[in-house]
Design a protein around this nucleic acid. Structure first.
Length: 284
DNA sequence: AGGGGTACCTGCGGGC
DNA sequence: TGCCCGCAGGTACCCC
C-alpha cells in the first residue's frame, strides 16, 4: 500500500478536517488490527479524547490526543482512512471500499465519522501513552524529505552498507523511512541504476543522481496526492484516487516500451517483490 | 550481515 | 461456468 506520498496525502487530508474534534465513541469490528492493548481499554481510553495534532513518520500516521495519548496507524497494504464517512459512500466513492472491511469507526461529537477500512487486514492501530512504546517506529531511519536526509547523510549510509544491493537498501525502513516498492522502482529507473547493483559499484555521480531522484520523485508524488495504480485500493480521505500513477514510468509496465530508449521493460523478483526495469537504461 | 522463505489476509484476473 | 494459481502498495519472524 501506501508509501510515503500516500500516507502524507492522508495525513494532510485528516489535518484539515478532524483536528479539534472530540471522540464520542469507537466501534471496533476487528480486534486483531488493534495492537498493544485489550479491546475494552482501547475503547475506553479513546472516549472523550480530542484530536490535537496529526503527524507522519515513515509510513505511520501519528494522531496526538488530548488528554495525552498517541493513536498510531499503519495502513499495511490496503488500509484506508475515510472522512467524512457517510452511509453508502462506499458505492459513491468506489465499489472497492466495502463496509464489511470497516474495522474501526471513530464517532465524533459532531456526529461525523472517521473510518479505518482495510481489505487485507495487514494494517495496525496502536494506542500508547508514549511513542517509545511503538518499537517499529523507534527503529525507523531518516525521513527522506527532511533536511536530515542530506547528500552527506546519504553518502554515509552508502558507505556503511556497501555490500547491499541498492534496491534492498532503499526498501529498508530502518535506513530510509517511507519508500516502498513503487517508488523504489521509479527512483532507480529515473536514476538509471539497475536494482541489483552492488552499492560499492556506484560511482559518485550515480549516488548523487540517486539522492536527487529520491527527493524529487517523492516530492512530486506528494504534490499529486500519491499513486492509485490501475484500479487498486488506495484513496485519499475523500475517496479520491492519487494522480501520480499516470506519471509512473516503470512500475507495473512489464512488456511496454521504455520511454527513454524504446527497449522492452522487464520484470524480476527481488526479495519477493516485482521489480521493473529497462536493461538498456539500467545496466548491471 | 545479508538473503531467502513463509506467514499474515482478501480479491481479482488469467489459464484451462 | 468454475477451479486453481499467481499476484497485489507491507512487515515480521524464521532459517541459512
Amino acid at each position: 500500500m501506501p508509501e510515503l506520498p500516500e500516507v502524507e496525502t492522508i495525513k494532510r487530508g485528516l489535518e484539515n478536517k478532524i483536528v479539534g474534534k472530540k471522540i464520542r465513541d469507537i466501534i471496533v469490528g476487528n480486534f486483531k488490527i488493534i495492537k498493544s492493548l485489550s479491546k475494552s481499554i482501547f475503547i475506553n481510553e479513546l472516549k472523550n479524547k480530542v484530536i490535537k495534532k496529526i503527524c507522519r513518520r515513515g509510513k505511520y500516521i501519528i494522531i496526538d490526543l488530548y488528554p495525552k495519548k498517541n493513536l498510531v496507524i499503519h495502513l499495511g497494504m490496503t488500509g484506508l482512512l475515510i472522512y467524512p464517512y457517510v452511509e453508502n459512500c462506499d458505492e459513491i466513492i468506489s465499489g472497492k471500499i466495502k463496509p464489511k472491511h470497516n474495522h474501526v469507526i471513530f464517532n465524533f461529537e459532531d456526529n461525523t465519522k472517521l473510518v479505518f477500512n482495510d481489505v487485507r487486514r495487514f494494517g495496525k492501530v496502536y494506542l500508547v501513552s508514549d511513542m517509545r512504546e511503538v518499537e517499529s517506529i523507534n527503529k525507523l531511519g531518516l525521513e527522506p524529505l527532511e533536511e536530515c536526509f542530506s547528500v552527506e547523510a546519504f553518502s554515509h549510509i552508502l558507505e556503511k552498507k556497501k555490500k547491499n544491493k541498492i534496491k534492498s537498501l532503499l526498501m529498508k525502513q530502518d535506513i530510509i523511512a517511507g519508500l516502498g516498492n513503487i517508488y523504489v522502482n521509479e527512483i532507480l529507473y529515473r536514476a538509471n541504476i539497475h536494482p541489483l547493483r552492488q552499492i560499492s559499484s556506484l560511482t559518485k555521480e550515480e549516488s548523487k543522481k540517486l539522492y536527487l531522484e529520491i527527493k524529487s520523485v517523492l516530492t512530486e508524488a506528494v504534490k499529486f496526492g500519491g499513486s492509485t495504480v490501475a484500479d487498486e485500493a488506495y484513496r485519499d480521505t475523500n475517496g479520491e484516487k492519487g494522480k501520480f500513477a499516470k506519471k509512473l514510468q516503470i512500475y507495473a509496465r512489464k512488456g511496454e516500451l521504455c520511454k527513454k530508449c524504446g527497449n522492452t521493460i522487464e520484470v524480476i523478483k527481488i526479495e519477493g517483490r516485482s521489480t521493473f526495469f529497462c536493461l538498456h537504461c539500467q545496466k548491471l
